[in-house]
Design a protein around this nucleic acid. Structure first.
Lengths: 350, 350
DNA sequence: GCCGATCCTGCAAACGATTGCAACACTGGT
DNA sequence: ACCAGTGTTGCAATCGTTTGCAGGATCGGC
């Protein structure tokens, strides 16, 4: 094997110039005279030289990659975000490292180590469950928060969750619903809290009652959506419409509800959040709030790049908008049942 | 700011030893005397020293990370695989870089560059559409193929697609179906081809007719599943059961079919492939072939690690098994309609 | 023919770690 | 007292590149 790597020295020898010239030809070509440049390039061709990134980066004092830290890589939610990041990063010749925060025993410590280790020039954080205090690391690289921390003064990408809730409630109210419930994400999650607060605001703003009995706690998962369905079925005076903090929960809800012969939008209207791919292919297709995940990734990456290279962070905070995707899981509320009580199944079958 | 990074020199000075000793204390502690070791560790504590990976790796001639190359990062299919990889890699202190092959103009060239650039110690390839010829790079790092190339003699992780098809067909045949169709992935995709071949084999092995009119071409996407539904509806003498090369297509099929008032398993039995998360939450819950995606990631990473460190590649090829997840989208075929023709809707309602 | 300006190139010192080699200090056996 | 062996440490080279500085060449204007 010619395991031996060809170095800049070899090229220099081949071209009859110094290593400095070779280096310059490759990084700032304008500064070297044309004939020399061509000779060097020929030598590069001939030897098949490839720069050694390790050496270059050591010298330059950067790593040439950024790291994305997510709470759970297996969650498909992140795949599109990563794709967005990858797109802008690779255009700038940066590498994208990914890591899972929730794997070891102490996630905060893990974050701290990533920051201190200097394994990357920057970091995008998607895990809002980590403590902002973990960012207190002396010489840490720039960090972009895409995890909805409220208090922290950090460059960040935020999703307009309040607007999402507003759009959902507005849509349902416009259809004539007044008993509009909400299925939340996990209590401790900031996204979940923001959406819940958004729902409350939107309700009160319209003079509707954001009744505590109409909020069902979930954890974003399909299973928790199915659970919510069971609790919703058992609830007295249950809402005629539900706004879900995630599409997954809406999916779980619909599946479970159907087993009790409850159909959307005939018996209940549902609005999801996120516009996951399957939303369009359910029966009924799910009305939902779309978060542009690719865009989130792109924005986060671009902001981080700015911070790393420019450094001023002009677009310090950026809010990405959401919109309502209208499909068929919402409709005007069913006419109140004659007896007014618990017989919507029978009524539905008529 | 104390932007200045603390180096091994600072630690050495603080501890009153040479840099060599510090380095050894950190990498092979047994070789240095206990008192010295403690002094060094104290100094490390005091100065807050962190090794500079760039420098270490330059010296050691490795990068400490591997790269996963996928055709489309946005595809949630990969998120679980990546999670699996991340798990074993981070346990070994390796980083995980990800990149999208299908972004630039020339994917093959892109792969070639990744290999030549030496940006990683190894590479896992998930894109079967690339040309194996692109791997012909002189001093390239080890590559694990997880993309079902047939001919190439490369360390690889394969999924037992043939067995998947066999399980699906066996299940449907056991239920009494004889007209079992197949919805394929894109023609050029090797996975798709293997599943198609598996379906053919399984059918003929049972004396069933793998009729050409019963295969519907798709591309793994939900949309293509919906299209397949329309073609299936229009087909003369259509199959009573369908085996899909992906769950996504099955989902698309079910959604579209329902609009024509066709229900599974009443009117048609469907088996998917992959066991995506939503499969369990559909109505009906989808019977499917499970691919253990996390395991695939783990295996691929472990094999690559072996290749990088051990080098012999003991477990050169590894086949991961699939299994049948029984849910409710399959049932015995409906009794043949009296007129035998196109009236299954009406018949079903009886 | 001289002078500054301009352009191009090479020298050599970094970047921050690892490691082969040799030196040194002990130990215990003779 | 000497020697071989063992355990511990330091010296200095090395990994492959970038870059500040300075020197040589060339040019145009006087």
């Amino acid at each position: 094997m010619d395991r031996k790597q060809v170095t800049i020295q070899d090229v220099a020898r081949e071209a009859g110039v110094s290593t400095a010239t070779v280096s310059r030809t490759l990084s700032k070509p304008t500064v070297v005279a044309k004939p020399t440049r061509q000779a060097v390039l020929r030598a590069v061709q001939k030897t098949g030289y490839q720069v050694n990134h390790l050496a270059r980066n050591l010298r330059r004092g950067r790593t040439g990659s950024v790291i994305a830290l997510a709470p759970n890589l297996a969650n498909p939610f992140f795949s599109q975000i990563l794709a967005g990041m990858s797109e802008v990063l690779s255009a700038r010749n940066y590498g994208l490292l990914i890591a899972d925060t929730q794997m070891g025993p102490d996630p905060d410590e893990r974050l701290r180590r990533y920051l201190a280790a200097g394994a990357a020039d920057g970091l995008v954080l998607f895990d809002g469950s980590l403590s902002p205090a973990a960012l207190d690391v002396p010489g840490r690289p720039p960090v972009v928060a895409a995890c909805e921390w409220l208090k922290v003064d950090l460059p960040s990408i935020r999703v307009d969750n309040a607007m999402g809730a507003e759009l959902a409630v507005a849509h349902l109210a416009d259809l004539g619903h007044s008993r509009i419930g909400h299925v939340t994400g996990p209590r401790r999650n900031v996204l979940a809290r923001t959406r819940l607060a958004g729902w409350r605001d939107a309700m009160t703003r319209r003079g509707l009652d954001p009744r505590e009995g109409w909020v069902f706690e979930g954890d974003f998962s399909m299973d928790s959506g199915a659970m919510a369905a069971r609790r919703w079925l058992a609830a007295p005076d249950r809402p005629t419409a539900l706004f879900f903090a995630s599409d997954e929960m809406a999916v779980g809800f619909l599946g479970e509800a159907r087993r009790a012969d409850i159909r959307a939008p005939r018996d209940v209207s549902v609005v999801g959040f996120d516009n996951i791919e399957v939303a369009a292919h359910l029966d009924p297709p799910l009305t939902t709030i779309r978060q542009p995940r690719t865009l989130i990734g792109q924005r986060a990456a671009a902001l981080l790049m700015d911070l790393i290279e420019g450094g001023d962070g002009a677009a310090f905070e950026s809010m990405v908008e959401v919109d309502l995707i209208l499909r068929d899981s919402t409709a005007p509320p069913p006419p109140p049942a004659p007896a007014g009580q618990a017989s919507s199944k029978a009524a539905g079958a008529a």
